[in-house]
Amino acid sequence: MNADTLAYINQHQLTSVMSFTKWRKLEQALHEEPNFVPHVRYKLLEDEEPNPSFTPVWWHELLEICERIEWLEIDPLKREHRGRLLPEKTTDFADYIESQLHKYGIPYSREAQGFRIWGYLHPDATMPAFCIAAGGETIKEAE
């Protein structure tokens, strides 16, 4: 881990939720459906605000910065432009994403924008309601 990142984590007393192995599992989990191209947005530890819009994920770049990701949101909707006269086609992949997160044991929370994968938690923040797979069932954990 980068020394500056480690110093930031220690200074702010952050709790790690994801490891590099879990981030790799997330990549694997979201690549099993060829029709789904994940669009994500994330917040890095040093950022005041997250990036404002969802963009296609470039995993090699994301894995290079995963140790600095505070959280990452996955948009479950695939939007396809069909021309100026036709409405956009929308496909919901929420069930697929949720089943994959359970299959790979990746803790997440449901947010208005989609699924949030937490990299770190702040000690003074409200604990998110995590959904985790345990024997095939979802367990909601909250403070």
Results as ranks from 00 to 15, higher is better:
residue 1 M to E: 15
residue 2 N to I: 12
residue 4 D to V: 15
residue 4 D to R: 14
residue 7 A to P: 03
residue 9 I to M: 05
residue 10 N to E: 15
residue 11 Q to W: 15
residue 12 H to Y: 15
residue 12 H to P: 14
residue 13 Q to N: 13
residue 13 Q to C: 13
residue 15 T to Q: 14
residue 16 S to V: 03
residue 18 M to I: 00
residue 19 S to V: 11
residue 19 S to G: 12
residue 20 F to M: 06
residue 25 K to F: 09
residue 28 Q to F: 00
residue 28 Q to N: 12
residue 28 Q to D: 13
residue 29 A to V: 10
residue 29 A to I: 05
residue 29 A to S: 10
residue 29 A to R: 03
residue 31 H to S: 11
residue 32 E to I: 13
residue 33 E to L: 11
residue 33 E to W: 09
residue 34 P to E: 06
residue 35 N to A: 13
residue 36 F to N: 02
residue 36 F to A: 04
residue 36 F to I: 05
residue 37 V to S: 11
residue 42 Y to T: 01
residue 44 L to F: 10
residue 44 L to M: 09
residue 48 E to D: 14
residue 48 E to P: 04
residue 50 P to S: 03
residue 50 P to G: 08
residue 52 P to D: 09
residue 54 F to V: 00
residue 54 F to L: 00
residue 56 P to D: 07
residue 57 V to D: 02
residue 58 W to N: 15
residue 60 H to K: 14
residue 60 H to Q: 15
residue 62 L to A: 02
residue 65 I to K: 06
residue 66 C to P: 11
residue 67 E to F: 01
residue 67 E to G: 01
residue 68 R to L: 07
residue 69 I to V: 12
residue 69 I to R: 07
residue 70 E to A: 05
residue 72 L to T: 10
residue 74 I to C: 04
residue 75 D to N: 14
residue 77 L to G: 04
residue 79 R to S: 09
residue 81 H to Q: 15
residue 83 G to Y: 01
residue 84 R to E: 13
residue 88 E to T: 12
residue 89 K to Q: 14
residue 90 T to R: 15
residue 90 T to A: 13
residue 90 T to C: 13
residue 91 T to Q: 11
residue 92 D to I: 04
residue 93 F to V: 06
residue 94 A to I: 08
residue 94 A to P: 09
residue 96 Y to Q: 00
residue 97 I to C: 03
residue 97 I to N: 01
residue 97 I to W: 08
residue 98 E to P: 08
residue 98 E to T: 11
residue 99 S to K: 10
residue 99 S to F: 04
residue 101 L to S: 05
residue 101 L to I: 02
residue 102 H to G: 03
residue 103 K to G: 02
residue 104 Y to Q: 07
residue 105 G to K: 12
residue 106 I to R: 09
residue 109 S to M: 03
residue 110 R to A: 06
residue 111 E to H: 09
residue 114 G to H: 09
residue 114 G to S: 06
residue 115 F to S: 08
residue 115 F to C: 08
residue 116 R to I: 02
residue 116 R to W: 07
residue 117 I to K: 01
residue 119 G to A: 08
residue 120 Y to W: 05
residue 121 L to Y: 00
residue 124 D to T: 05
residue 125 A to M: 00
residue 126 T to G: 07
residue 126 T to W: 00
residue 126 T to L: 01
residue 127 M to G: 11
residue 128 P to T: 06
residue 128 P to C: 11
residue 129 A to V: 02
residue 130 F to Y: 09
residue 130 F to I: 01
residue 131 C to A: 06
residue 131 C to W: 04
residue 134 A to K: 11
residue 135 G to F: 01
residue 135 G to E: 01
residue 136 G to D: 10
residue 138 T to P: 07
residue 139 I to K: 04
residue 139 I to W: 02
residue 141 E to S: 00
residue 143 E to A: 01
residue 143 E to H: 14
